[in-house]
Structures are given as structure tokens and as C-alpha cells.
Design a protein around this nucleic acid. Structure first.
Lengths: 234, 234
DNA sequence: ATTACTAGTTTACGAGTAA
DNA sequence: TTTACTCGTAAACTAGTAA
């Protein structure tokens, strides 16, 4: 689940990248199997087969002509390449946005109680700009995201102060602006990650609040995978 | 020749990237074959074998312990990943440096004559800051670099004016600061790409000038591959 | 729980060739 | 010259098992 839906082999992606480097992203580019084969260091037969497979997978479109073929990369192909690129970016670059991935889970329903407390709700209205739906959407982060999440410590949080009433004290919390996207491409942008101020930041659970009930808004069921893009606030 | 020396398969690189995402670049990271297998969507046996191959190729170091193994990525492994990353950067990002690759060729020796003409030489001294060795180092660019080279049109060149004497006119030229690196890792930084001002910019030949004879300085022979990093001047 | 070996199967490959 | 087929081989995979 951590690796995005490949459905195609690594060799196919390498071939696709090669086409992109030859100009297949900008539009059609003229290729020959032998030239491609030379670049990829494989036989012309393999180059031919690779192109066929990419076409069958809907990652390229092409038109063969007498002395070669015109190849262009489809939107799906570009998305495939961009996923690869983002993956390497995560390896080498310090991100200004953190991309987390997790599966919707029922959580323990305790979020609803705390969110709706007036001591918190007033701060949400002031500092987040909306009154959140009285409940949190909980995600089970995958192992990579648990690690990525640690990068949150480098972000400037929106503080939510703790307070106390006659019976007990309520601890401070932090929020980070975020947007979420489903695997179907549906998105909701005005959400916040919320977490206790003092957390080990090694959690595999992520809690989200939003002005609407995300579970209904995005038609989510337990187990649905959600991408969460956490931005630097400010 | 266009694709860098892989020597390892695309699947191996994907596995290496997965280890990097799990923290194998920063230092040792704790892995298990089953966890890795889940991330890569392959069997645990394949994960085990992939790790063996990466170790044999010198791209990772590891120590197996009772409940898994500690894996770290070697310098060679990091270089491999960075090459992949740069490759995707070339696909998606507008580069501020152009990376060209070509093989040393004898050229036609006409460079020597023009370079040493006083009308040009004075401008080199003023605008490049040195008196170039009276000759050019000529490279045969590979097909990818021929395309990349077109990006030079987006760069601000150092202009070299044309002039005329009693016999004929000498055309204007443009220079771009560059540094060169051999496949052995030897480098020379104070060089310039030089080209006629009016060029089709679709050339497969690249001419370099430098204060020294690069062919001797870098112990170059015809056919040796040279990386040329062309920077935005200014 | 691990890692990794052996065995059997599937997949990918290059050579040769046709269109 | 191209692209892409068939065919025999080589490589990579999964399943089962041992340590």
C-alpha cells in the first residue's frame, strides 16, 4: 500500500522517462526503436515491445510511420512520471509540504467530545477561520508517512491553548493547515491536522478537522486511502 | 551511451529508493524483508534477493540481526539515486544549469586560428577574465545533449563582437561559463562554451575554450566522455 | 518472528525473420 | 531502413522449507 499503484514494471517507467527526456511530454516526438534501444541499452526488439506495453497501459500514444514513430506521453503517463519524480524529491529535498498517506479508520470517537468544547471551539473560530464539524477524521498512516510525519516538528504550528474548568484541565494542541485528496481525485482543501501539543510525533494516527464532515463530503468509508498534504502555516 | 552506466536493473534502483525513503541515506535503518516486500509489492523472497544484489553491487551495506537487518546506503548507492533524481529533474524542471555530455573529438582544428586573432583575444581577456589557450576542445554531443543544448537559448550569453579587417569580416560569437568533469571525476571549472552568435542551436558539436589546454590538463584522448555543466552567466 | 536456500513457473530477453 | 512477429534461452519471480 505504501508504493503507489504501479501496475507496470520498473523497466516500463524507465522507458517512459526516456521518452520524456526525448521530448514526449511537450508533444509528439519522433522515435525509432533502434535509437530508443541504444539509449536504454537493450535490443531493438525489447524497445519495440516496451513501446507496445506502454501503449497498452495507456501511458503513451503513438503513430508508426515509415521511418519510425511519433510518440507522445498521455496525462496518465505524465502522472506516472511525476509520481516517480516526487518520490525522488522526498529522498533528496527538504519538503515545504509534507505528503502523508493513510487509511480512514473509525478512531475512538473521543475527538467529537473535545472539539465541541467551547474553550477549544472559540479558538478554532479565531485562529483557523471556521467552526469545525464536531468530530475528527482519523487516519491510520502507512509506515512511510509515520516517518514523514516527524518532519512536522520543523513546521510552525497554529497553537491552540489549553485551559481548565472546575473539574479538570484541557491540554494545549497544535494545528497545521492541510488539504486532502482521495484516490478518486476528490479533494477538500480547508482542513487542519490537529494533535496534542506534547506528542511523541511518532504516531501512526492522524486526526483531521474541517468545517464539514469529511466522511460525508468525500464519501469515505473505513479503509479508504487518503492523501494529506500538510502545508507550512503562515 | 546516453543512459548512464546502470550495470544494475531498474528493479534494483526502485528497491534502493525504497530504502532511502525509509531512512537508509541518513544512516542505518532497520528493515525486514517482509516489510520491504509489502512496500514494493513483491514476495519476501524477492525482497531478500534484491537486498543481496544491492549489497553485491556495493550500493548498500547491511548487518542482519535476529529480527531484521540494519541497512545503510553507500556513497555509490547515493550517487545512483541522485543520477535518477537528476534525470527526473531534467524532465520536469527548467534547469538553471544545463548538463551536457559528449565525447572528445579532434575537430577540424579551425578553432585555433580564430581564437588567437587579436580582435577576439582582446575581448576574451576583458569579458572572460583570461587569455584562452589558442585552440578549442571539441565534443561530439550525445543525442540527449543535443536536445538539452537547445535550452541554451534561454541563457544570457557573454557576447563577443564581430569585426572586420582589410581582407574579410569576422562574425560575432557568444560564450557561456561552464565547468567540465571527466568520467574519472577530474574537473576543470574555468571554461566557456563558445559558439557563433547565429547558430541553429541544433548542433551536435560543442566547442570549449579555457585558459589552459584542456586536452593536456585533463589527460584527454579522442572518444573520452566529458560532462559539461553550463551555468547561467552573471 | 527473522533470512535465504532450492525447486518449479512465469516473465523478459535477444536472435532471426517477415512485412 | 523501419516495426513487430516467433522461438529458444536466460533471468526473475513465487512457493515451500531450513536454519
Amino acid at each position: 500500500m505504501a508504493e503507489a499503484q504501479p501496475a507496470i514494471g520498473a523497466d516500463a517507467v524507465v522507458t517512459l522517462r526516456r521518452i520524456a527526456l526525448d521530448g514526449g511530454l511537450a508533444g509528439e516526438t519522433k522515435l525509432s526503436c533502434s535509437g530508443l534501444a541504444g539509449d536504454l541499452d537493450v535490443s531493438t526488439q525489447t524497445a519495440s515491445r516496451r513501446l507496445q506495453h506502454l501503449e497498452e497501459a495507456g501511458l503513451i500514444e503513438r503513430e508508426t510511420v515509415g521511418d519510425g514513430q511519433w510518440v507522445s506521453i498521455t496525462d496518465a503517463g505524465e502522472r506516472t512520471l511525476r509520481r516517480e519524480y516526487e518520490s525522488y524529491r522526498r529522498v533528496f529535498e527538504e519538503p515545504e509540504v509534507l505528503e502523508l498517506r493513510g487509511a480512514v479508520t473509525s478512531g475512538m470517537g473521543e475527538g467529537r467530545h473535545y472539539i465541541s468544547l467551547s474553550g477549544y471551539m472559540a479558538q478554532f473560530r479565531d485562529r483557523l477561520g471556521y467552526e469545525p464539524f464536531p468530530g475528527t477524521l482519523n487516519l491510520d498512516l502507512d509506515t512511510e508517512s509515520v516517518r514523514t510525519r516527524m518532519g512536522l516538528s520543523g513546521f510552525e504550528p497554529i497553537p491552540i491553548d489549553g485551559w481548565e474548568d472546575e473539574e479538570r484541565t484541557y491540554g494545549p494542541a497544535v494545528c497545521y493547515p492541510a488539504s486532502v485528496t482521495t484516490t478518486d481525485g476528490d479533494a477538500y482543501d480547508e482542513t487542519h491536522v490537529i494533535a496534542p501539543e506534547r506528542t511523541h510525533h511518532d504516531e501512526d494516527q492522524l486526526e483531521l478537522i474541517a468545517p464539514v464532515k469529511l466522511r460525508d463530503e468525500l464519501k469515505l468509508a473505513d479503509g479508504n486511502v487518503l492523501m494529506v498534504s500538510v502545508e507550512e502555516s503562515g
